[in-house]
């Protein structure tokens, strides 16, 4: 069983390391695509915040929800 785990772990780890090489830095002036509305984690932050508020009131409980848009990372 232990050998089986290792035989699975090693290729997975190698694959994960190989994928890391695809990481690249996005310079501050290259964020045009990241700043597009469809790239936002939450496309409608105001609507989401309102729904969370209503949900919290109805359920009498609120989780640690947050509603924020994406963005250009501007200063």
């Amino acid at each position: 069983m232990k050998r089986l785990t290792w035989s699975l772990t090693t290729p997975t780890l190698c694959l994960a390391l190989a994928c890391l090489s695809a990481c690249s830095t996005v310079e501050p002036w290259e964020r045009g695509n990241l700043a597009r509305p469809e790239m936002a984690v939450e496309p409608h932050p105001a609507q989401r915040a309102l729904r969370d508020h209503v949900y919290g009131s109805r359920e009498a409980a609120a989780a640690g929800a947050s509603a924020a848009g994406g963005g250009c990372g501007c200063y």
Binding site: E27, P28, L34, A68, G70, G71, C72, G73
Partner: peptide
């Protein structure tokens, strides 16, 4: 949210 934080702190990491 995580993505937002990472992007926002990128100027610091650039240094």
């Amino acid at each position: 949210m995580l993505v937002r934080q990472v992007v926002r702190h990128r100027p610091l990491s650039g240094r």
